[in-house]
């Protein structure tokens, strides 16, 4: 390396002045970079966009070649997804159409089904699957956040022999591939009568999410200064009172973020649900997957189902964007 004296700066480097603020070339480069990133992001979003519009296409428009960008939006996909229909033929169909034209008040879903010559018999299986998803994801989230909160507090505040090993053990359970645990669990659940039950799945997802909740919440609680509790203890609070009245309110953001993460993970879970449920407790993800197998593929219904999954997720991603990395890396990375 040449010495500093030979190659030293010709002009003084003034602290606080960034090159891109003074140099037009650097500023241009910065703008180009921003444009490139935005273009790449838009390209990346094409599949999401494609899925979004497919959800509103009619059956004919979905399979149009080349893919249509402009089309008449319809709720057909949602009707297919959410209702159980039967085909009407001949006179019954004509009769139903006549009634509809005659001004008989029918819902928008009925009207769409009628356009395809179908009558709605009732809600589809998918509604039941969504309900199962809601019960199982909700129940397991409640349990895992509650248990995780207590454990995280204890791990954060007390000297526990073998603490690091215990935390390591808790996290390592998360790394197990579902398929590996599912085989023995299947046998165990069958023995205990938990196979295909909501309770069994809640229990399973609780455990599945515990590692996440313990680690995330411990991170959040670690950030709350101990001094607050110490002051409360001096004032005569019991340890439990200090936990509920001092720590919990301060950890509220962390608890909320953790709750949402564990709900999403349980809501999205597919492998365990596929292997440990069959009908009674089957959740939405494996149900969407098997929809493909039955008869003709209703792409618009699948797109509608995907959209139903995507919309809440986008909102949640926005709400959680500050904690996103933290949630996905178990608290290793804080933005």
């Amino acid at each position: 390396m040449t010495s500093f004296a030979e190659t030293g700066p010709r002009t003084a480097v003034t602290e606080g002045i960034r090159v891109d603020k003074v140099n037009p070339r650097a500023r241009l480069l910065k703008n180009i970079r921003a444009v490139v990133v935005i273009i790449l992001a838009l390209v990346g979003l094409i599949p999401v966009f494609a899925m979004g519009i497919t959800a509103f296409k009619s059956r004919a428009d979905v399979v149009a070649v080349p893919p249509k960008l402009l089309f008449e939006p319809t709720l057909e996909g949602f009707v297919f997804l959410l209702t159980d229909r039967s085909q009407l033929r001949g006179t019954t169909l004509a009769e139903a159409q006549e009634n509809a034209e005659g001004g008989e008040p029918i819902g928008i879903f009925d009207r769409i089904a009628l356009q395809n010559g179908q009558r709605i018999n009732g809600p589809s299986d998918f509604i039941l699957r969504l309900r199962n998803s809601l019960i199982i994801a909700g129940g397991s989230t409640l349990l895992s956040v509650t248990l995780g909160l207590f454990a995280a507090y204890a791990f954060s505040r007390f000297e526990i022999p073998g603490k690091d090993d215990l935390l390591f053990f808790i996290l390592s359970t998360r790394m197990l591939p579902a398929v590996v645990v599912a085989v023995p669990l299947f046998l165990m659940y069958r023995q205990l009568g938990l196979h295909d039950t909501h309770f069994g799945m809640i229990l399973l997802y609780t455990v599945f999410n515990l590692s996440l909740t313990v680690w995330l919440l411990k991170g959040f609680i670690d950030e709350i200064p101990r001094e607050y509790e110490e002051a409360a203890l001096v004032d005569g609070y019991t340890r439990l009172q200090a936990f509920f009245k001092i720590v919990l309110p301060q950890a509220a953001t962390g608890v909320a973020a953790t709750t949402v993460f564990s709900f999403i993970f349980a809501w999205n879970e597919y492998a365990f649900a596929l292997m440990l449920t069959s009908n009674n407790a089957r959740t939405a993800p494996p149900a969407i997957a098997t929809m493909l197998g039955r008869g003709g593929i209703e792409w618009s219904a699948i797109a509608a189902g995907t959209l139903a999954f995507l919309i809440p997720v986008i909102f949640i991603t926005f709400a959680l964007r500050k904690h996103l990395l933290r949630g996905v890396t178990f608290g290793a990375v804080r933005q």
Partner: peptide, 21 residues
């Protein structure tokens, strides 16, 4: 950055399905 992260929060099986399309 938030928008491009959304797929990550989706159920992989659902992502797989709509990519099949």
């Amino acid at each position: 950055t938030t928008l491009i992260l959304a797929p990550m929060m989706l159920s992989p099986v659902v992502v797989g399905l709509f990519w099949k399309l």
